[in-house]
Each structure stands twice: as structure tokens, then as C-alpha cells.
């Protein structure tokens, strides 16, 4: 295991009250594996990713990276771990400094982590070629690249210090369909050649299915279902997963006409004041009176298929 997260909590104190963004999330990530983290806006998937690499301070739970507890490490003690865990961001426009050249952007983590200076330039050229750009482009500024090319620069930056795990936060959502496939293929190739582990955060369920070995579905700060990706998509158990999958548009007219839509009532409740017990019960088509006072835990329903609902 490269990563083990247990009971992770992250709350934000706002003028309106305490937002329960991540409310007891547990999962493991094996070396070389891709775990997909999927859910709708506000479910806490991005906050989970950021808390794991300690961009946010956790309010509860434990984060074990390669056998070592990093939950409370000081920023100085975190530095060697930060080299081993990197992040790729969603927005290829906002995540690159417009005043730095592509080469300087990729070089920056090498400076921070004290890689030998005489290797920097060669390494920048190598990384640019690795992500499908060429070394002559090192002197160009972000605005001279297209969206897909900028995302390649962001990936080269994440790879600069040879990490073992990368948190990919919606890395292709801002890109056009034809470019998404280019970047996803590249991430898969890099994973194979460099032995990387990915936590892949996205809201696009078909892309998550394609790239992930296992998938965790989040709703309102909690994981409601976690299983192997084929198993999850062919036999979803949790009522939320069932309705989520039924809402994904299918690019095939006949299949689209034939499918049954399991519509959900209403909207996602506020994370300021989540419902008691099972927090999905206010929208659940199967809700029972007892759901208001028992908090469902993820339990193994067989074949490593975990579901947080005692009634399935």
C-alpha cells in the first residue's frame, strides 16, 4: 500500500457555520494502482485529495503514506514526502504562472527539492519530450500553448521530482473530447513506465471507469460505495450510485432510448447542516424511518464490493 486513509475529516469554519466537507473517509491505494474518486460538485472529492497531500490540515482521521503517519507532520518534516506525492490540477489556464516560461515552471520543484543544479536543464528537456512536447518549447510562456499542451506542462511539473503518487484532480475536464483521450493515454503510459499510483478525481463517470482499477463514489463528504471498477458499473448497489449511473448520457441513440432513468428527488442538502444518520436519506428512493438515526458504515458485501447501506 502506498496510501492508507482512515476516518479522514476536513471541516471549514465559515461565517455561515461549519461546512462538513469530508466527514469520515477511508480507503487504501495500492502501488501502481488507480483509484477513481467520483461524485458531484460539493461532495468533497477535491477536498479529500488536497487534504491527503496536506494542502489542507486534516481535522480528524489518519493518513499513512508508505507506512508512515503523515497526518500531523510539520511542514519541514513533510518536505521529503511532498517530493513523493504530487498533484495535477484541473484548470490548465489558472494552474501555470503566466510570467514563467514552461521550462522555469518545470524546473521550480527541482529547486525546491534540491535536485543537483547541473542536471536541471537536461531534466527539463527530458520531461518535455516525455509529455509529448519538444525541448525547444522550454522558453515559451503558457499563453503560447493550447489547453491540452498546458495540461502536458502541468504533468511534466508533477513528474519533475519523480513522485510515487499523483493526485489527479479533474485533469481532463477542461479539455476538448479529442484532447482528453490524448492526455488519458499519456497518463496511462506514464503510470506503466514509472510505476506511479494515481488518485484520479473526476465527475465524468465514463472516463473514471476507463482509467480506474477501483472506484469510490462520494456523496456529501462520505464514501457510499467502493469496488472494482467493472463490478461497480455492472452491479451498482448503493441507491445513490444507481441513480448517478442512470443519469450519465450514453453516446448511442438506441441504448440511450432504452435506458431507465432513476431520477432523484430534490437537490443535494447543504454540507453546513447535513441530514442525521445516512445523509443520503432525504433523496433516497429506498429510505426507511431507521435511516435517520443509524450512520451506515462501508461494509464488504463480497468480492471487495463495499457499500454504505445496510439494506442492500
Amino acid at each position: 500500500m502506498i496510501l492508507e486513509v482512515t476516518g479522514l475529516k476536513k471541516y471549514f469554519d465559515t461565517p455561515a457555520g461549519i461546512v462538513h466537507s469530508v466527514d469520515g473517509v477511508s480507503f487504501k491505494l495500492a502501488k501502481g494502482e488507480t483509484l477513481g474518486l467520483v461524485g458531484e460538485s460539493g461532495c468533497g472529492k477535491t477536498t479529500t485529495g488536497r487534504t491527503i497531500i496536506r494542502l489542507y490540515e486534516p481535522d480528524g482521521g489518519r493518513i499513512i503514506f508508505d507506512g508512515q503517519d503523515i497526518t500531523r507532520k510539520s511542514s519541514r518534516d513533510m518536505l521529503p514526502f511532498r517530493k513523493r506525492m504530487q498533484m495535477i490540477f484541473q484548470d490548465p489556464y489558472a494552474s501555470l504562472n503566466p510570467r514563467m516560461t514552461a521550462g522555469d515552471i518545470i524546473r521550480e520543484p527541482m529547486i525546491i527539492h534540491g535536485l543537483p543544479k547541473d542536471e536541471h536543464t537536461d531534466r527539463v528537456s527530458h520531461l518535455l519530450r516525455l509529455v509529448g512536447l519538444n525541448s525547444e518549447q522550454a522558453g515559451r510562456y503558457p499563453h503560447e500553448f493550447s489547453g491540452g499542451q498546458r495540461q502536458r506542462i502541468g504533468i511534466a511539473r508533477a513528474l519533475a521530482v519523480e513522485p510515487e503518487m499523483i493526485v489527479c484532480d479533474e485533469p481532463v475536464s477542461a479539455l476538448d473530447v479529442s484532447i482528453q483521450a490524448q492526455i488519458v493515454n499519456m497518463l496511462e503510459d506514464l503510470q506503466k513506465s514509472l510505476g506511479l499510483s494515481y488518485l484520479f478525481i473526476a465527475h465524468d463517470l465514463s472516463m473514471i471507469r476507463h482509467i480506474s482499477t477501483r472506484v469510490a463514489v462520494m456523496y456529501l463528504g462520505r464514501i457510499v460505495e467502493l469496488s472494482g471498477s467493472d463490478e461497480l458499473y455492472s452491479r451498482p448497489m448503493h441507491p445513490y450510485t444507481v441513480s448517478l449511473l442512470s443519469a450519465v448520457p450514453i453516446p448511442d441513440p438506441d441504448k440511450s432510448d432504452m435506458r431507465k432513468l432513476v431520477a432523484l428527488k430534490g437537490e443535494v442538502p447543504s454540507a453546513l447542516n447535513p441530514p442525521s444518520g445516512c445523509n443520503f436519506r432525504t433523496r433516497c428512493p429506498e429510505a426507511k424511518p431507521e435511516c435517520s438515526h443509524l450512520t451506515p458504515e462501508l461494509e464488504d458485501k463480497g468480492n471487495g464490493h463495499y457499500c454504505a447501506c445496510p439494506f442492500v
Binding site: 493550447s146 491540452g148 499542451q149 476538448d176 473530447v177 479529442s178 484532447i179 482528453q180 483521450a181 490524448q182 488519458v184 493515454n185 496511462e188 465514463s206 472516463m207 471507469r209 476507463h210 471498477s229 467493472d230 458499473y233 450514453i250 453516446p251
Partner: peptide
């Protein structure tokens, strides 16, 4: 365009992107 989408019938199959830029 249609080929570059993940195919749910062949979930882990490598995607076929359109090369190059717009």
C-alpha cells in the same frame, strides 16, 4: 470524435485520440 470516447463495452481498452491540435 466517437472513437475518442471511452467504450463502456470495452472498459479498459486504450483510447483512440485524434492527434494534433485544433
Amino acid at each position: 470524435l466517437l472513437r475518442s470516447l471511452p467504450n463502456p463495452e470495452r472498459p479498459r481498452e486504450r483510447l483512440t485520440p485524434i492527434d494534433g491540435q485544433p
